[in-house]
Write a protein that binds this DNA or RNA. Structure first.
Lengths: 194, 194, 194, 194
DNA sequence: TATGAATGAGTATTCATTCAT
DNA sequence: TATGAATGAATACTCATTCAT
């Protein structure tokens, strides 16, 4: 029925969230089914009621994370304002992800060992979809004269790369607040499009 | 004597190189001692003649890689030319690493699960030493009026981050040659210091 | 609940008993997890469901054995009769152990390699507790004029030592029955307290 | 030649002595060829020049130890004095062994895992030869009216057992000197023959 | 005579997966 | 729907043994 369907979906999501946490701490190979289950006060056997196997869990983690992030970025894109304003929003959103949802974010940028060719391609494809949102905005900005770039894709790569690196050094009690980082990065990175 | 010492050292290096390859393909947890040995037509048992355990091998991989890369960057720093020219060289060197020694490079930027606190700190310290070379050059460039930056360290983070991301998308038969990438990145990233 | 708790406890005990057998035949180092499991028609992997590791199993073997034996000796001590009668009972009980539960007994008198300092001390402490029961009875017997000994502890050492040696030579089909051995030893060893 | 023959014999003995030490600390299974070699500043490979394999080393350890001890006991037997005096000497000699050559002694009383039937029987036979020396003296003492015993063999078992236990509790800095222990044990144990 | 190097069989341990209940 | 229990394949590591030099 609908009810148990919802429960099922909720539980699945819980498991995925738990898996994300564990995978981020120990890596996909280091994370054990027991780790994932323990977080939820379940036993590892139960996980198999919801997922086919470990690979399946890890894969759906990536899927969930990328879907959510893409949706947020699309929201920026569909908002009001100039292309520059939109891109600034997208940059800030991405940075917020990198910092506040470090675990989820990490999964977005590391395809991770363990997958079959097919699965890996699927994930990389989704990741590319995400990146395309940035490209679209940049290209529109170039068309409207807001931006300048000889190679928009390469420029986007630089922008995303610079931001993805944040989670490598960011520490909660560091000198800069999230806001400051967002502002400085946004301002600086826009220079790449001038 | 010296002879067997050299042989020993050579063998150790061979093992580390093999380990780097395997770790890059399967991650530190996925890489097995057998994988590492097979590459060299050895049996896993033999590895223990040269290294204490797997952890030891993986750690020394990182150590070797970072030492080598730092040495190359220091060479750029000690060369002739303005600070801008030096930084350009460092950027090109870093990009060459990211592309041509993808495996080694990957190890430089992913601390990886599996280490003890002590070991991890040691590795992060070495990585920081590497980054400091960039900072030094940037700071000198600011002093000499070549560069402008409110926050040199943050700017360096952007520059390195942008470059580190290259190995995520670079494909040997892509549209851009290594040279082109080096030029475009160098030119673009310098904008962050203007 | 209680049911599965009991099953668990039963299984653990079975494993310990199997381990005792194997350890006695091959020594603690020679005994393999596979040996221990095979006896119970299990696979070695299953043992880890019940115990943390091999060391844990071996340690708990000693613990179980010493607890049981001490309890039997305390029963003798709490019985009726003179101190001489009590000591005779204790001697006979100890001999019965040495002969009938040779395997368990062996574990009582050989601390065995493989333990950490802490564990070894714990075991030696339990063994000492056991021996103290003999001392108490001897001392009371001296106080009551039944026994004579300049050094009760040393005398107890002789008595226990003499008995512990039995399992080195006793063979089921030998000339003496268990009963005869018990009688002869009890009578002879009491001479040490006269 | 004679010279290299002697060297060979000396080296073999050194190896056996080293093996005895190690086996006593770690048990026959826990002792590694490397341990044995290290003590002598050799490499494990070299041991195979002197002995066929590990089993061979351990076996010859037992052989050496038992031969030496038996020779000492025979000396007591061949000395002057009454049978009681001889037995007292044998007891003191045995105790000295148990205390001063604890490692060697230990090997005498623990046949140890690891042997083939044939080897084990050979060792047990030698051990029996050693015990027979005590029996002979006791029997002669009974014949001469010095001793009384219904079952000389059983009495000898008690005497040896009591002494063998000493190395389980003796500590170099304990309350009793070796001399005192020898005297008390000798005096007490003779009671078993009265 | 000794050793450096390699090997391979064995061992403890982990863990994804299964399944009866 | 969940779990307790078991399994077996994989994996790090050890060590006796071999052998060319």
């Amino acid at each position: 029925m609908k009810l148990s369907d919802k429960k099922m979906r909720k539980k699945k999501e819980d498991i995925l969230l738990s898996a994300i946490k564990v995978v981020n701490k120990k890596g996909p190979n280091g994370a054990t089914m027991e780790d994932i289950a323990a977080e939820l006060l379940m036993t590892k056997g139960s996980l198999y009621y919801y997922f086919k196997n470990k690979e399946d869990i890890i894969f759906q983690c990536h899927e969930m994370v990328l879907t959510e992030a893409t949706s947020d970025i699309v929201d920026c894109q569909n908002g009001n304002g100039t292309n520059e304003e939109k891109l600034l929003n997208m940059i800030k959103t991405h940075i917020r992800y990198a910092i506040e949802k470090k675990e989820i974010f990490n999964m977005m940028i590391k395809p991770g060992e363990m997958f079959t060719e097919v699965q890996l391609n699927q994930i990389l494809h989704m990741r590319n979809e995400y990146a395309l949102k940035f490209d679209e905005t940049i290209v529109k900005g170039i068309a409207s004269g807001e931006f300048v770039s000889e190679d928009p894709v390469l420029t986007r790569m630089m922008i995303l790369g610079a931001m993805n690196w944040i989670q490598q050094w960011y520490r909660p009690n560091g000198k800069k607040t999230i806001n400051e980082i967002q502002e400085i990065y946004a301002a600086s990175l826009l220079k790449l499009l001038k």
